[in-house]
Design a binder for these strands. Structure first.
Lengths: 344, 344
DNA sequence: AGGTACGATGCAAACGTTCGCATCCACTCG
DNA sequence: CGAGTGGATGCGAACGTTTGCATCGTACCT
């Protein structure tokens, strides 16, 4: 193993100079610096991370805690976070909490001492986990807690956009198929939809759920949606939308003919379905990147002076084949009968 | 931060005893050990990983290098590896090489010094990467190299199973839509299919490709498949199958009526499609687990006495709606005309 | 020309752990 | 009863890096 000593000898300087030349180049005279870097490259020197950590206190690595790595949603965040961490020369410890609050807290506790900070995605036990990290910097993704930095999608804007789209198509009664009861994003989406409905004025909202955020949840919700009289539906995520569409078809009805469907997340499947799914997309990779940036910036500062700054990522409506004007009905409210001519 | 010294003071022993009590319990008298562990728990002591690494040489962490974390295939492997690493008390560094051979080698080089071993998935530059890890233990996943331990799927058996299935349905001419040229698994699948065709005797194989392992690759391959006269097709992976089905439909033909399709990997989408996709499944999480186990076992041993042991994981044929008997043809080889009555 | 100031570099301590070796004690055996 | 034995524990060095402080030389100012 080649150490600072070897490089120092090769460059004809002391180990302090080697260390400085590599970690704070501006504090070393240019010619010396060049000799050192040349020697280091020549010998293939790689600083021993353990030693730096031990001495300097910074770990050169950050932690990422996600509920389920196999879920493409979190995999995308992980990919973004990993890419940015690499760009910044940081290692990335990944832990999958398997949706288990205890495991999550345990993971945070284990990660905290050996990292410079933690990215905590969609936490299942925020309070306990935040406590477990004993003051270490943290960034929440897809969750907000007062006083903690976070990266979130602009669910409110997304829901408004979805509702505007449906209203423009002529829908006046829209259902929402909610996700898990304790889900933070479900809460945000509900409030976002309510606000949007109030703002648009003439769209009625039917809230359903909670439902499991899986295909099965969509199956379960479909009949409720149909019975509700809604002509369009927004679902908690794309999988629910998939299940919903399947069940609606089984009932002999058509999507988007009899029911327009808007999913959430723009999951992998969304564009592969027939019809391809209209959905709300957030750039999850950039969410991962933003979280790492946020963390790095925070680690640079003394501590909590940035406080609860929240990065809000835009949400984009991706219009595909699963939304269309409602079928004109004869027995309904005569006001809403005609195909709409007024756009926003 | 609570250190061995604190624990030692609390337990009334020396720091050496604390260290021993926690890392080699059998070398410490039971009552002492109990006092130490009690004190450690009481104070919430967590050994400083950096310090142990520095002194003891073992990192307490392993590295995982994958070409694309957002690909559910690798995400599943990562999940399995992570779970097992956690069970064994190891940290897991994850690096996404973004399909870039240089980045992969770089990642391995960076990871090697700070880990106890590396799991290298579907390497894009094996030789260089193996060289970069300078003797550090490694386990290859989804790849084989003489003299290196690996975890691979039994592609041969899988292909045989797929071909048997298609033959039992009555297919006698089967196409294979290959993946990327340099893909190891593509090679294994091709040789597996050839062997299976020889073994079954009366099935003709049409090899196509290379094609991109994406939906677009399926689009590109579809017309070739139809022109080949094959009544069934096996694709490099499920995404290719998706594209293939789409294009076949555009051509006005039906799946599985006019063409039976077998995918590979049992990706997330496979069961969501209409028709759901018949595909070959490997338990990728257990692949991740096996790789970590293999690594841990190897790290325990002196070095390379286990050598090139390869863990071969079973491949299972999941029969869904995309395969069916071929449509009886009038203008074809009269021998193959009738719906088959002979199974196996 | 002498004093000052500052930039560049070297020296050495410290980070928290592990482990070879030394020490100590109790027990056993001759 | 004394020497030998071995198990349990303590001592202290070492791992490779970072960094506060000291030192040295040079350049600038008066």
């Amino acid at each position: 193993m080649v150490t600072v000593h070897d490089v120092a000898r090769a460059a004809g300087v002391s180990i302090s100079t080697v260390s400085r030349a590599l970690t704070m180049p501006e504090r070393v005279a240019a010619p010396t610096r060049d000799r050192v870097t040349a020697a280091a490259r020549e010998l293939g020197y790689r600083p021993n991370r353990a030693a730096s950590v031990l001495r300097a206190g910074r770990a050169g690595a950050i932690g990422l805690v996600v509920p389920d790595l196999a879920n493409p949603y979190f995999a995308a965040i992980a990919k973004g976070a990993q890419a940015r961490a690499r760009e910044r020369g940081l290692g990335l410890f990944v832990v999958d909490s398997d949706e288990d609050p205890d495991l999550e807290t345990e993971a945070v506790a284990g990660l905290a001492p050996q990292t410079d900070g933690i990215v905590l995605c969609s936490p299942r036990a925020v309070e306990r986990s935040v406590e477990a990290l004993e003051g270490r910097p943290v960034v929440l993704v897809n969750h907000e807690v007062d006083g903690l930095p976070s990266v979130v999608a602009d669910h409110g804007a997304g829901m408004l956009r979805a509702l505007e789209h449906l209203r423009a198509l002529g829908h006046r009664r829209v259902a929402y198929v909610g996700g898990p009861e304790r889900s933070w994003s479900d809460g945000r989406r509900r409030t976002g939809l309510r606000a949007a409905a109030v703002r648009l004025g003439d769209v009625e909202l039917v809230e359903l759920g909670p439902h499991r955020p899986q295909v099965a949840g969509g199956h379960a919700a479909a009949d409720l949606v149909l019975a509700s009289g809604a002509t369009a539906v927004v679902t908690f995520n794309d999988l629910v939308a998939v299940g919903l569409v399947e069940r609606v078809r089984v009932r002999g009805l058509d999507v988007p003919g009899d029911l327009s469907v808007v999913g959430c997340d723009d999951a992998y499947v969304a564009e592969l379905l027939a019809p391809p799914l209209t959905t709300l997309r957030t750039d999850l990779r950039s969410a991962g990147r933003a979280a790492v940036d946020h963390l790095a910036a925070r680690a640079g500062r003394s501590g909590h002076d940035l406080g609860d700054a929240a990065v809000v990522l835009p949400v984009e409506l991706v219009v595909r084949g699963s939304t269309a004007p409602p079928r004109p009905t004869l027995h309904d409210d005569p006001d809403d009968d005609a195909v709409p001519t007024e756009d926003t």
